[in-house]
Design a protein around this nucleic acid. Structure first.
Lengths: 336, 336
DNA sequence: CTGAAAGCGCTAACAA
DNA sequence: TTGTTAGCGCTTTCAG
């Protein structure tokens, strides 16, 4: 069995309270006793039982992080940073994967509660507004990224409309005239805002909004990007540029272009979204909107911990984090 | 406050013992009482406090999973599957990232113990044999993947030597004559075995082992692969094939080849290791050794849970999982 | 078959 | 300042 406070107290010849005080860096402890306790602490190799502490304190010390899947580079990287930020505040993170399925997202929401986690960071994909009723009234949660649902929750994200506009304006400035987009999907929150930014940029440039250039995508995997791109390339008047709603779609689009012998960027400029490292090494390298993931992680964890510690109610604040457009080979130079 | 067992008992008009029995599906409960309790259960929306349960049971219900970083596709995907496998057994997973640094790996090892987790799955990168002394004597742990250290631990992995041989034999069969490798690193366990497989395959083919074709890599990121490949291409007699010790190195190598105008696979065949999805969409697509990650996750979690449940000591068994060679464009056809 | 009660390891009143 | 003690919510002997 592990060493307990009582064991340490016995060895040091003091009460558990004193040991507890020392362990928690509390109030004034007589120096002589402090020394005694510290020696006993190292002698026994004492380590607090986190579960017992949290039971007593009425919290668990855990966050839930709900994401579609860790195998997606964006979420793997984001999770990495959220875990790091949580550790800095002595919290641990439980990862719940939903594979973007609404039923799994719903059951994750329903399972959230004071019995298991103190709060949660959500990145839902298919949740509808009504689903948030599943959430207990006093479970502090917050969302990262854009989502279609209008929930009364704090949200940490970049300005997706602006980011999408930035991406498309970049293509306009390159002299591209038929700019497509890939990723339209009414059930995804990110889609709506990126589509809006796309449309705004075209409108600002006085370019027509051609419906056939808006390619839908059920999922946002590489495969989906490739399929959508193939369809676009088969158009009688194919696009000379494409804005993909994430990097995986863009990588798929690059793949489809390569298969058809379409030169990127000469015949087709491609912009992605996520700033994943994969895009920095693809052939050609990928221009992409790069959100500051570290900032998202930091702000989200910071917000959630203060929300938990203060016990204040939800506020549905929007915490905006920065992004940059990383220009790389896939949009290098003007149209040939 | 959340609903407790006592609340349910009060509502049902029975003792907590009876409620507990029902909740845990225990022994015989009088049907009338069972009904009473079940009604009270749904009426109150009772959810067990996992922390309290585990405190009482003397276990935490958590595993630790120590990996370099989740942002690396291989580990993101593996973690995804391990979490899934653990959930199926009512366990949760705490992820500890070490960024491949020995000191962080050491402190993770030292922090493992019955107070926080019931056991751990380790994927160390820099640990030395002596570091395992940091591990408490009764902490069930097991390793996934190959590692240089000779620890008395269970291990779940593919046959790395055979896998590496398979990769290189494939290049030999393609008619390649100067086969390089990237990833040599005396401090990494994976390196030693993959290098051995590489050497065995060359020896079997009656090909000389040219030291300048063995490119070291401090880390296994895309950047490192690109750097190593650039150096290889600057050799007076550059290689016509390269076996990279992971897919990220291989993607970097593809990048370097593209920069130099070296045609893959015509001038240079490239094989990776990991079977990551990124390689299935790179340009050209990447031939790779693909371990069955789902099998690794499943076997590792299964082994660890039985080890915990039975309380048996470590056994240093080697549990071997399958792999396949996925042949793609980067090695398509014979040398031009 | 069920109730009472002890106690997992810890923190925090409350006393001393 | 420090000791005593009562629980946090749960499981589990031990009686009944």
């Amino acid at each position: 069995m592990a060493v307990t406070l009582k064991d340490v107290a016995a060895l040091a010849g003091v009460s558990v309270k004193t040991v507890s005080n020392v362990v928690n860096g509390y109030s004034f402890v007589k120096p002589a006793n402090r020394k005694l306790v510290e020696d006993a602490l190292v002698a026994t190799g004492y380590r607090p039982n986190i579960g017992a502490r949290n039971l007593r304190r009425g919290r668990t010390g855990f966050f839930a992080l709900m994401v579609p899947e860790l195998g997606i580079p964006y979420f793997g990287e984001l999770a990495a940073m959220i875990i790091t930020a949580a550790h800095e505040r002595d919290r641990n993170v439980l990862i719940e994967q939903t594979w973007g399925q609404r039923d799994l997202e719903r059951s994750t929401l329903a399972s959230l509660g004071p019995h298991l986690v103190d709060g949660a960071i959500l990145s839902p994909e298919a949740l509808e507004a009504e689903d948030f009723a599943l959430l207990g009234p006093d479970v502090p949660v917050l969302m990262v990224g854009e989502h279609a649902v209008e929930a009364r929750l704090d949200r940490v994200a970049i300005d997706n409309v602006l980011a999408a506009r930035t991406a498309v304006e970049h293509l306009v400035r390159l002299g591209r005239r038929r700019i497509a987009c890939i990723g339209e999907n009414p059930r995804r929150g990110t889609s709506a805002m990126r589509l809006q930014g796309y449309r705004e940029a075209l409108a600002d440039a006085g370019m027509p909004a051609d419906a056939e250039l808006v390619a839908p995508a059920v999922n946002y995997h590489r495969r989906d990007g490739a399929e959508a791109m193939r369809a676009l390339l088969e158009l009688p008047d194919p696009p000379d540029a494409v804005f993909c709603f994430n990097d995986m779609l863009a990588v798929g689009a690059l793949r489809a272009a390569a298969e058809r012998g379409v030169q990127v960027p000469a015949d087709l400029a491609v912009v992605g979204f996520d700033g994943s490292e994969e895009g920095a090494y693809s052939t050609p390298t990928l221009t992409s909107i790069a959100p500051d993931k570290a900032a998202i992680a930091e702000r989200a964890v910071e917000r959630l911990t203060t929300r938990i510690d203060t016990g204040l109610p939800h506020e549905s604040a929007f915490i905006q984090t920065p992004f940059v457009l990383e220009v790389r080979e896939s949009t290098a130079g003007r149209r040939a």
